[in-house]
Amino acid sequence: MSTPVETTALTKYYGPTVAVENLNLTVRPGEVYGFLGPNGAGKTTTLRMLLGLVKPTSGRLRLLDSAPGPRYLDRVGALIEGPTFYPYLSGRDNLRVLADHAGVSRSRVPEVLATVDLTGRAGDRYATYSMGMKQRLGLAAALLKSPELLVLDEPTNGLDPAGMADMRVTVRELAADGCTVLLSSHLLAEVEQVCDRVGVINEGRLVLESTVAELRSGGTLRVRAAPFERARGHLESRLGVARVRVGDVDSAIDLHVDAAQAAEINHGLVGAGLSVSELRWREPDLEETFLRLTGGGVSAD
């Protein structure tokens, strides 16, 4: 099976400014890959390079095992930096024009309009569309070629919560149908909900690549027990100093252990005559992780 996206040492300079540096990115077949980073991190420049809109300064890139060339984008659909269409044309005519540019049959137009639930307003001028309708039309345009790879740049930008939820559902449905999705976002929650794997880019460099499940592993067990110092001493002697950390709120101790050990730890504390008031498993704080990696530029919304 072909590799949907593969970049090797991809680099782009704008004059002396580094936009993307030495980026090695691999997106696997059938996954939804979240490309996460703060505004200006290099996400859009990377996607523009992938689509041939911007020429790399150096490095290699391949989409679906094809190097840039005449048939490079044959099986790729894209929505880059928000939808842009001809305002005086209807949604339907915009898609017909793009179908002609793509060299696909115009019979695809009603199909993609139905997919994004825009058939009812397809005859209206694009200029009269709401932001949510514009995004849906953008997605419809990206689907014209029945793509195997979908590149979506901030697809929920400007959408209300319901529109964002709809877009996420649509992306997951497309992935379920076998389409690989590369989705850029600066919204942590979006990536958590939609993506299988995540790449975090900051200042043009990939600073983390992981599955969402991996990011979620490594939680902590929070304990509150009195008296505090005795409880802390008990836990350090039992688990080792390295696995015990004083929590960020009063009288809390965070333990780097498996969730399954909770009952055993509770039994030990009670057995030592300590009074346990809280014993709670805490998922890892992804927001904190990303803020640390990106210098505070990723939104948790």
Binding site: R48, L51, G52, L53, P70, Y72, L73, D74, V76, G77, A78, L79, I80, E81, P83, T84, F85, Y86, P87, L98, H101, A102, G103, G138, A141, A142, L144, K145
Partner: peptide
């Protein structure tokens, strides 16, 4: 110039036609 004004170059070129074709 309309393609620049409406930023539609990227919409068109992402559909795969070569720049020389357009």
């Amino acid at each position: 110039g309309g393609e620049y004004g409406w930023q539609t170059w990227k919409t068109v070129l992402a559909q795969r036609p070569a720049r020389t074709t357009v």
